[in-house]
Every structure is written in C-alpha cells, then in structure tokens.
Amino acid sequence: MADAAERVRRLVPGLWAGALLCIALIATPAPFATLATHDAGRVVARIFAQEAYLSLALGVGMLLLERRAASAAGGGSRLSTSMLLALAAIFFTVAGYFGLQPMMADARAGQGSWTFGQLHAVSLALFGAKIVVVLALAWQAATPRRPLNPAGPSS
C-alpha cells in the first residue's frame, strides 16, 4: 500500500503540470482562434473555472500524500519543500481564480479601480507562477525519496 501511495505521489504532479500546460498552450488559445471574442471568453472562463477546482483538489491531495510520505520517513520536520510547493500552487489558484475573477467581472462592467487588462495581466502572472511551482513539484516528486519495490511487498 505504501508503494501505491508513493507511485501516486510521484505521478500526480506530472499529470497536473501537463494539464496546466495543455490549458495554457492549447485549450485557451483555440477558442479565440475559432470563435467570436465574447463566445471565446465564455469558453475560456469555463475552462479556468474547471481548472481552479481541479487544482484545489490536486493541491490538497498532494498535501495529504506529502504528509503521509513525511510521516513514513519519520523524524525531522514534517514540512517539506514539496508541501510548500503544493501550498504555493493552492495560493496561486485561490488568488488567481477566486480572488481576481469577481474583480474582472466588475472591471468588464466598468466598476472598480483596476481595468480588465490590468487584472487579466495579474491573473496571467499568477497562472504562470502556478505552472512554474507545479513543474517544480513534479521535478521534486520525480526524485525518489526511497526506492520503489518493483516486485511488490516482500513476504
């Protein structure tokens, strides 16, 4: 069972990073290339809404997996670099989506002190930072803490 959790701990960050890169490089530019700007904006808004909840779930899942790995390693601090990276990804998600999206809707309506373009730039920077953090988490997870037993548990 510990090997399965370790494999998941190593796999999830890479899949998460791949999903973020796919959204950034393929899924969000495509609607703007094929649809009217208003319709494309609605499609992309929906993509980012789904991504935000996915990132929250994966971030919390990674925190739990890292906590389990730290407990299994025993001794020392339970707060690891990987945990800090997962927390940073959660922070960027909350700030970028849940913090800025309501402000962007207000800016589109002409309200607020920031323009839509300014908020969009900040949102893009936070999403980019999240990608960097999740890539670092994937790199960290690819470095084994302990070797996996390919033959399974010994009897």
Rank of each mutant, 00 (worst) to 15 (best):
K130P: 00
S71R: 15
G74T: 08
L64M: 13
A69W: 01
L100C: 08
R108I: 02
F116M: 04
I90G: 00
A88R: 03
R108C: 01
R146D: 04
H120M: 03
G61L: 14
Y53R: 14
P13W: 09
M62Q: 15
G61M: 13
L54E: 03
G117M: 06
I23W: 01
G128M: 05
V8W: 12
C22M: 10
P102D: 09
L15Y: 01
Q111H: 15
A89K: 09
V94T: 11
H38V: 10
A151M: 13
E66S: 14
V122F: 07
F127H: 11
L54C: 14
C22I: 03
T34G: 06
W139F: 07
T115C: 03
L65Y: 03
R68N: 07
S80L: 07
A105K: 11
L87K: 00
V44E: 06
T93A: 04
R42W: 02
R78P: 03
A36H: 12
L11D: 03
G76T: 12
T143N: 10
G74A: 14
S82H: 08
H120Q: 09
Q118Y: 01
H120N: 08
R145W: 01
F127L: 05
W114A: 12
I131E: 03
A27H: 00
N149R: 15
L65F: 11
P102F: 07
A2D: 15
A30S: 13
G18C: 04
Q101H: 05
E51W: 02
F92W: 10
F48H: 11
A45T: 08
L119F: 05
R42Q: 11
E6H: 14
S71H: 13
A33N: 05
G75T: 11
V134K: 00
A72V: 12
G110D: 05
M104R: 13
G14S: 09
M62C: 13
L124P: 00
G41I: 02
A49V: 02
F98W: 13
V134S: 01
I131R: 01
L20Q: 15
G110Q: 02
V94L: 13
N149T: 13
D106Q: 14
Q118L: 04
L85Y: 02
G99I: 08
A17E: 06
G18N: 09
A2T: 15
D3C: 00
R78F: 08
A95L: 13
F98G: 07
A30R: 15
Q118A: 11
L137P: 00
A19G: 13
V94D: 07
A95T: 07
I26Q: 09
G61H: 12
R7C: 11
L35N: 10
R108P: 03
Q101R: 09
R10S: 13
G112M: 10
F116A: 07
V132C: 05
L119A: 06
G99W: 03
L135R: 02
A151K: 12
T93V: 05
N149F: 07
F48Y: 12
F91R: 09
R10G: 14
A19N: 14
G74W: 01
L85T: 04
L54G: 15
S154R: 10
W139E: 03
Y53H: 15
M104D: 01
A49Q: 09
L137M: 04
I131M: 04
L64S: 08
T143E: 08
N149H: 13
I131W: 00
V8E: 06
S113N: 08
M1I: 11
L20W: 00
E51P: 01
G112N: 09
